[in-house]
Amino acid sequence: MVLKIGYYPGCSLHEGMAKPFDTSAKLVCRKLGIGLQELPDWNCCGATSGHSIDHTLNLALGARNLNLVTKLGLHAVTAPCAACFANLKKTSHDLKDPATCQMAQELIGEQIADVDVIHLMDVIAQPAVLETLKGKIQNKFKNLKAVCYYGCLTVRPRFVTEAADSENPQTMDNLMQLLGIETVDWSHKTECCGGSFSICGPEIATIRTNEVLSQAKATGAEAIIVACPLCHSNLEFALHAESSKIPVVFFTQLLGLALGYSVKEVGLHKMLVNNFPWIEKLTS
């Protein structure tokens, strides 16, 4: 089965801090028969400055990206980055309003068709893909206790993201449990880490980050699994400052390990905590 879908990497995955998220997402998708087609000459989605101070620019940026999906002959696009996903999804949602759609068409100078925006986690969690995944798992994890951290934008606001549960989501937990990881229930899985303010508002970002980290540590988790490059760098940098040995990793990297790729292939050697004994946690 080959499932074709547009691929929007976003700035952070393309050439930034979250490159390993991009590499591992592509490997995993290839193995699972998900045909990712990167949008040619995609532009920044606008998150979070665009929607914060200039909604016209934000609409134009999002509409152009969505239009690139249509031009590839596709009807859906996936973004691994939570912020890109949420902002593109918001634009797709806003474009359902005829007046907004008219305005966007004038801005980009082209007709706009309906495009669905799906987070990569939900693409992989589709029943047919899950069946493929189950058949292709080569190594399972053993004795690995971790917390799944969804952050804000994979789930909220639920009337835009269409998340089944925005307070206690289970998609990532279910995926990770399938790989043998013991995922722990915890209080802060959808609390905000303040990632978008790590540069421009450290006073609030520090409060948020410390709260999320102290709750994650209290569970006794050995790793924090994330689906957002902003959460990732924010939590990783805070842990680095305190010389902590808890790795913060992308869910696609662990999927990659289970599917038989090496630590290097999925980019786990590029994490700030890069000496975690991943291989010892795997059983073939």
Partner: peptide, 14 residues
């Protein structure tokens, strides 16, 4: 096509 939309947004005055 990108430069086109940026120009359009600027003309829009927002």
């Amino acid at each position: 096509s990108y430069r086109f939309i940026i120009k359009k947004v600027k003309e829009g005055g927002n």
